[in-house]
Amino acid sequence: MELLLFTVFAAAACGGAIAVVLSQNVVRMAFYLVISLGSTAGLFFMLNADFVGATQLLIYVGGTVVLLIFGVMLTASGPFLTIKSSPGDMVQAILVGALFLGMVVVTVLQVDWDGNAAKLESRYGVSSLERPGYNQRGEGHTTRSIGAALLGARFDKDLGKNREQPSTGYLLPFEIVSVHLLVVLIGAAYLARAKRRVNVPSEF
């Protein structure tokens, strides 16, 4: 069952991605992107990352892609709907891509990940997700732990352990990303809006 689901999701994710590359119509690209990202969310669920999967669906598929589609709508007037890349480019890109893929896949798949994990766990402790206790799968999976971690407390790691320092919590990025988003959105809004006044300011 798991294998079947994985095959379906993986095929959809990869196929969607490849379709994005091959498609020449920007609206179709957006559609394939949704499929790809949505299937990735499915993969996240299979990896027991329910919160991440949900976020992926909400923010990525629901937010970012919608943003992109807005962009498509604002710019896709007739001739720009399909701007074809030349076959020469495509072949060249696919050649480079195949090499790149080969490099990454060969490198990554060569590694004995399970062996490494076992070796590291034997010295640095068991992966928290597999550890019975506070964070069992039955208890709402990861959501509660993630929530606590974003406030800086790592109950999943620290509870019941004898540590001098608390483990890494993510309070700072959680807060600072908000500042970042604010700054970025101000910037995006600045670029998108028209000048309000007419008097030509010092452009130079």
Partner: peptide, 8 residues
């Protein structure tokens, strides 16, 4: 030393 539980 480290700040914010080791982030900085």
């Amino acid at each position: 030393g480290e700040l914010f539980t080791g982030l900085l």
